[in-house]
């Protein structure tokens, strides 16, 4: 613990990261905070400081829209985080075994991440096409008729499904990296103690994987609370705003003719504060459960 504390080396090691990070992430963000206090609308040479006006607008004139978006975002976030974590941890444990096809399984599950969101959008738009798509035809067999992504009762559920489908490979790969670093001896010891299968998973794997669980949960919270691209390609926020997440809402504000990007920046700051609070709480709780050697 004390080693290196008096040393200059730790700081030297941190330097490159701190320099690059400040230059390309931190300073630009501060600029963004400034924009959120202006009526900047694309013309960098002509905009005015408007104080907290943009923030006021978000919580007065547009309150209904913003609040609705926050609610949907939270539902989206919680559901995806739970589902995706549960599924990907199981998948990671399964593909971590010595199976002949495990390389094939890993690649297929991870593939949507390689193809990108555009492709995911096309694929599921076609699969959920209510006119000739396979899902709709299957439902017709059971005399069920649905507009699928156009049905405000199930659109959010479908978007959540696609989100998990597309991103569980990402979490799986992270879990896999965690599993790879659990010493095999621990399992053998557990086996000698009579623990196998579920028991060894419960008492050896899970505790040691806790740090990866934290990582995944936090990455998912961040990813889902800020999400807009998958919504953009699937439903564009509809139907009846049932999938209008905050990220999507901000995106539409950048584009709607009159509203300024200063306003969009202010909304992005609101989003930042929300994510920060949620992540802070999540971080606090899951850290307590982590096992440190």
């Amino acid at each position: 613990m004390n080693r290196g504390a008096s040393n200059i080396w730790p700081w030297l090691l941190l330097m490159p990261a701190l320099i690059l990070f400040s230059l390309f992430v931190l300073f630009p963000t501060i600029g963004n905070v400034y924009f959120s206090l202006t009526d900047y609308a694309g013309n960098i040479h002509n905009f005015d400081f408007v104080g907290l006006e943009n923030y006021k607008r978000a919580f007065t004139a547009d309150y209904d829209g913003v609040w609705n978006a926050i609610k949907i975002t939270l539902i989206f976030c919680i559901t995806v985080t739970i589902l995706q974590n549960a599924i990907s941890i199981v998948l990671a444990v399964l593909v971590n075994q010595k199976l002949k096809l495990s390389s094939f399984y890993r690649s297929t599950i991870f593939m949507p991440n390689i193809l990108g969101i555009l492709v995911v959008g096309l694929i599921w738009t076609l699969v959920f096409d209510p006119f000739s798509g396979p899902v709709s035809q299957l439902l017709n067999h059971f005399k069920i008729n649905s507009a699928l992504l156009g049905d405000s009762k199930i659109a959010l559920a479908l978007v959540i499904f696609v989100q998990v489908w597309a991103h569980m490979g990402y979490s799986m790969v992270l879990y896999l990296a965690g599993l790879q670093s659990i010493p095999k001896e621990l399992y053998e010891a557990a086996y000698i103690d009579g623990a196998s299968g579920w028991k060894s998973f419960r008492h050896v794997t899970l505790p040691l994987l806790q740090s990866m669980v934290t990582i995944n949960i936090i990455l998912m919270i961040i990813g889902t609370l800020g999400t807009f691209d998958i919504i953009f390609v699937l439903t564009n926020g509809g139907p009846n705003e049932s999938t209008m997440t905050l990220g999507m809402y901000i995106f539409t504000k950048i584009f709607s003719g009159g509203s300024s990007q200063g306003y969009a920046s202010a909304l992005a700051m609101v989003q930042f504060v929300i994510i920060f609070c949620v992540v802070f709480i999540a971080q606090f709780y899951s850290r307590r459960r982590e096992t440190e050697f």
């Binding site: 096409d129 709709s136 649905s146 507009a147 992504l149 156009g150 139907p239």
Partner: peptide
């Protein structure tokens, strides 16, 4: 509009 028009992609 045709049935389930709310679910059909514009491009189709």
């Amino acid at each position: 509009f045709q049935q389930n028009s709310a679910g059909l992609a514009y491009g189709q």
